[in-house]
Design a protein around this nucleic acid. Structure first.
Lengths: 173, 173
DNA sequence: GCGTCATAATTGCTTATGCAATCATATACT
DNA sequence: AGTATATGATTGCATAAGCAATTATGACGC
């Protein structure tokens, strides 16, 4: 690999056309795949993706429970967004809320038995959808490179949640 | 009833853990990058990404004009979604609508001079954002593989907009 | 020319979501 | 202990977006 950003570069080439194209494809791919999955999940299970994701993340967590904030991070929703979503799920009995014993401000979202069952009913089909629309499209190598690249993106953008003038500068001056 | 799609293969490994992980990373990457870009664009230019994208796509089109449906496809919005969005942009004078002379049902969205200027003011900064949050994170090779993979995803999922039993079967029976 | 069907865009309606403000509790400082 | 500040979650509010129904026009057969 040739280019790791040259320090005193007089002319950073800016965004390459390659990168621009990739960015467009990224947006497009996300939209089309995501819509397909949502469509199928709703059609077959009457369950939107966001709801599914909550059930899934809870089921993957120890005791089927997670603090609201952590759950929000995992399902990629704002705090308030998650509050409403859990509210809805609680309304239909798939999730219940419990207060946190060690911190009275905190709340747990807990997967109910019905919730677990509902997830069980939906999961196989949804995984097949993901496979069909995403997994089967790429071969193993591609998939692995893709994962690596995407994780880099995540890492880079979690490192700088706000605008950051300096690069990675965790060291206090 | 038990599922019997085990017709030909005794055990297709289904969705690999790799693919699952990649899928998660995909969703996460989209969210974090997209939010960062939106945040910066709104903060510096008071212009949401969707709006920017409309201006951009129009400016890239011949004569700065596009039929509503085509524009909707390019900015990845539903038809109705685009109608409202263009409405808003027309309201602030960045876009104007024109009837199509050859087809009275059709409408063009046309970039106004102000719209072009607004885009001009926003573009450089936004491209820098894309570079920072996306372009700079991956090297050239990664970027190219990423683009290819994503385009495969797009192609695969455009081919089957609805549930499709048969593969690519555009031939009318 | 006229009915039928397809297509372009819009509108009604519902809903999910984020931001900013708020409330309640915890933690820290003196 | 008592006040100040931070943190977890929720609420008010505004808004963007999709789906289904609607309108307006074009195209096609007879």
């Amino acid at each position: 690999m040739q280019s790791h950003q040259i320090q005193p570069a007089p002319e950073p080439p800016g965004l390459t056309p390659q990168a621009m194209a990739a960015w467009q494809s990224f947006l497009q791919a996300h939209t089309v795949v995501t819509r397909a999955l949502e469509r199928e999940l709703v059609a077959t299970q009457r369950l939107p993706l966001a709801e599914y994701d909550v059930l899934f993340q809870l089921s993957a967590a120890p005791d089927g429970r997670l603090r609201m904030a952590q759950l929000a991070d995992r399902v990629l929703l704002s705090r308030s967004g998650l509050t409403r979503l859990v509210e809805r799920l609680e309304g239909v009995g798939l999730v219940r809320r419990e207060v946190c014993p060690s911190d009275a401000r905190g709340a747990y979202a807990v997967l109910t038995t019905t919730g677990r069952a509902r997830l069980g009913a939906a999961m196989a089909g949804h995984l097949r959808s993901v496979q069909e629309h995403f997994g089967d499209v790429l071969d193993c190598q591609q998939m692995e490179s893709l994962r690596v690249a995407l994780d880099q993106l995540v890492a880079a953008n979690l490192a700088e949640p706000a605008a950051c003038a300096q690069e990675v500068a965790p060291t206090k001056p």
